[in-house]
Amino acid sequence: MLNTVNQLNTALFKDIDACLNALYRVILGKEQQVQLALTAILADGHLLIEDLPGMGKTTLAYALSRVLGLNYKRVQFTSDLLPADLIGVSVYDPRTAAFSFHRGPVFSSIFLADELNRATPKAQSALLEAMEEGQVSIDGETHALPDPFFVIATQNPQTQYGTFPLPESQLDRFMFRIALGYPEPVVEREILKGNQGRAKLADIQQVLSRDSLLEIQQLVPQVKVSETLLDYVQRLIARTREDDLCDLGLSPRGALALIKGAQCWALLQGRMHALPEDIQAVFVAVAGHRLIGKQETRGEQLARHILHEVDVIGGSH
């Protein structure tokens, strides 16, 4: 039995590696971010990518959907976007003399919300139910969304003109927030030569079947998290809640996302048990957008500081 599981796992690990390699070819030099993005999807979580315009956010989101072979829709968020533009609308059909519901773009497996924070809070809130419950309600009717359903949102830094800050409740629904950052000089040279980027997007083939994806998602909770590791996680969480540092600490939902993210990360590394390294790898992505520091410290800085401070070793278990 153990053997078959291992064999099965080995096959899945291979699939995951293939996925990653396919993505690396499109997004050069950003292994860490690509892994985090894939981790979020495999762990059944939503992903928020924050960066300046033109850093390859959309490319990453699109590449992900291609690799996973999922039905993909994209909406550019603007300040005049309405909830109906996302969810859909009931239209009167004169032939049947009845209203019929026209599904909006949110009815897709991967929903790319581009520049999410350019929309008004009203439009943003239309996504809340979809992200948490996997369904939408309109005119008193509830419509289930496809399974799996992922939201990949990109946002511009809040210092840019024409952005609305996302409320904490919505931020908390994103499992990870990642930033891409400027490419390395070598990589940039490749991009400038034109060997890179959107041109290659069309070449991407589906690597992971829908079944494999669901199997991996079921495998994630089986990754072993030991008591000692939980001690470490609790030390980290406790530190975010100490009042000399943060105004807003990590919520239990955030803590769960941390563990699930670490489990999935371990899986990506080909392990069935989680290590402190896995926690550290996903901690900033999990905590960065959830923590609110005193004196306007940025959440990421705070998360890095906490990571640096808290001892990995120790615990009563």
Binding site: P276, E277, Q280, L307, H308, V310, D311, V312, I313
Partner: peptide, 9 residues
């Protein structure tokens, strides 16, 4: 050892 270093590191 710095506190943030894992055993492997």
């Amino acid at each position: 050892r710095l506190p943030s270093q894992t055993p492997q590191q």
